[in-house]
């Protein structure tokens, strides 16, 4: 039953979708009025990987010469394609009314904020390098290095084609650890904030204490980002969000890492201010 539950969690995480409304930027030159385009974006994927249809939709009303590289922006913030979609949403639009309204640009690429994304192979390279980094933390990179080229390809194709079973058949190996150690060497995680100079916080953190006690999400935050923890008397200032939900602070980080990591094997945790209303 427990195993089945865990599998359900993996499934729910994989199939998480965000309803999104793409609107063409008002200054873009069109031949006709551009209708908005609606799409359910997969949380675990990358925005440039799943927006071919959006591009096609706007092509119909625009001249070819007016179209440069497409980029996205939400309420003035350019959206980084190298962050998973779920993270972008949780970080920037957690508590707004749905659907998530994204503005589509074909001009004035914000060179300072965004990386160019000329092809999917770039996304793949980024994805694989993130996985390798995660495995380096978890197993000193032994598992990912023992895999063959085709295994790497299977991970990527699983993500690209939204094939849960294909992806997890291989990803399962990355989630293994020696039983006697009770977890990975270090938990691959990143904590994101909207109002910060740093893009994210990332530190070495073990899943179990020296005494063999499991570390919880609370323990992690206490060490890495104590401000996120609310004292009992105080008003809750921050929400700690992963995949659009707020896990309880008692949740063991090892379990979180195994089940709530993104396909790149990182726990992308968003810490956002509690909405005031």
């Amino acid at each position: 039953k427990r195993m089945a539950d865990d599998k359900d969690v993996l499934r729910d995480v994989w199939y998480g979708r965000i309803p999104t409304c793409f609107t063409l930027y008002q200054d873009e030159i069109t031949e006709r009025e551009a209708e908005p385009y609606y799409l359910l974006l997969p949380r675990v994927s990358y925005i440039t990987l799943v927006t071919d249809k959006v591009k096609k939709h706007f092509q119909k009303v625009m001249k070819q010469e007016d179209m440069e590289e497409m980029w996205f922006e939400y309420e003035g913030t350019p959206l980084k394609w190298h962050y998973p979609i779920g993270l972008l949403f949780d970080l920037h639009a957690s508590n707004v009314a749905l659907p998530w309204s994204i503005t589509v640009h074909f001009k004035n690429f914000p060179e300072r904020d965004l990386l160019h994304c000329p092809s999917n192979s770039l996304i793949e390279a980024h994805f694989m390098s993130t996985i390798k980094e995660a495995d380096t933390l978890k197993h000193k990179g032994q598992v990912i290095n023992d895999m063959q080229k085709k295994d790497h390809k299977q991970l990527w194709m699983g993500l690209q084609n939204d094939k849960f079973d294909q992806f997890w058949a291989m990803n399962r190996k990355l989630m293994e650890y020696p039983t006697e150690e009770g977890g990975f060497r270090y938990i691959p995680f990143r904590i994101y904030q909207t109002m910060s100079d740093r893009p994210f916080i990332q530190k070495l953190f073990r899943p179990v204490t020296a005494e063999g006690q499991s570390h919880t999400l609370g323990d992690l935050l206490k060490e890495v980002f104590p401000a996120a923890i609310t004292n009992d008397d105080d008003q809750k200032k921050y929400q700690v969000v992963i995949h659009g939900i707020e896990p309880m602070l008692e949740t063991p980080v090892q379990w979180l890492s195994e089940h709530l990591s993104y396909p790149d094997n990182f726990l992308h945790i968003s810490v956002i201010p509690t909405p005031t209303d």
Partner: peptide
Amino acid sequence: CSWKRHIAEQLKHRDRVQRQAFEEII
């Protein structure tokens, strides 16, 4: 059980609000 159940319920709730409500309409 409680933290796990919490996560499962939260995920289900998230999908109800974010996915199921819009799937058809989109």
